[in-house]
Computed example of a mutant assay.
Amino acid sequence: LKTALEQLPPSAHPMDVMRTGVSVLGCLTPEHEDHNKAGAKDIADKLMASLGSILLYWYHFSNNGRRIEVETDDESIAAHFLHLLHGEKPSE
């Protein structure tokens, strides 16, 4: 996924970046055949957890040539996003 994101230009629209990231994720981790309610919720949770990392990895690489670590121990999606954006754990 990171390799694919690194190929996208800085001029790409953020929504295109996220769509491309989701498409790559779909190839790397295909969904199960059954789409029950619990399975659909798991897919949605994984996407929500991944979209900020996709966007900010691309942003830092395309604008600064920096490969950032996208794993954090933050307790919310918002905190994770801010952590990746600013490079440090956000304040309460």
Rank of each mutant, 00 (worst) to 15 (best):
68 I>T: 04
15 M>K: 03
41 K>G: 10
79 A>G: 11
49 A>F: 04
23 S>D: 15
30 P>I: 00
9 P>M: 04
21 G>L: 00
22 V>K: 03
4 A>N: 12
66 R>S: 14
54 I>E: 03
61 F>Y: 13
3 T>E: 10
26 G>E: 06
59 Y>N: 04
49 A>S: 13
31 E>S: 15
42 D>Y: 14
41 K>L: 07
34 D>R: 11
33 E>N: 10
69 E>D: 11
13 H>D: 11
35 H>L: 03
46 K>A: 13
31 E>M: 02
55 L>H: 04
28 L>M: 12
31 E>L: 08
11 S>I: 11
9 P>C: 07
32 H>S: 12
92 E>W: 14
61 F>E: 01
30 P>C: 02
37 K>V: 09
27 C>V: 03
34 D>I: 04
31 E>C: 08
38 A>Q: 07
74 D>S: 06
12 A>Y: 06
83 H>M: 03
62 S>P: 09
67 R>I: 02
89 K>G: 01
80 H>W: 00
51 L>G: 01
91 S>F: 15
48 M>R: 00
31 E>N: 07
57 Y>L: 01
15 M>F: 15
26 G>C: 04
62 S>D: 02
38 A>R: 08
13 H>Q: 10
23 S>C: 13
24 V>P: 08
50 S>Q: 07
71 E>Y: 06
9 P>Q: 10
59 Y>T: 08
75 E>V: 06
36 N>G: 13
9 P>Y: 10
40 A>E: 11
12 A>K: 01
31 E>G: 05
68 I>F: 09
88 E>M: 15
51 L>W: 03
82 L>A: 05
5 L>K: 01
13 H>G: 06
10 P>Y: 06
74 D>P: 06
5 L>E: 01
75 E>F: 11
43 I>C: 01
88 E>C: 14
72 T>C: 08
2 K>F: 10
53 S>Y: 01
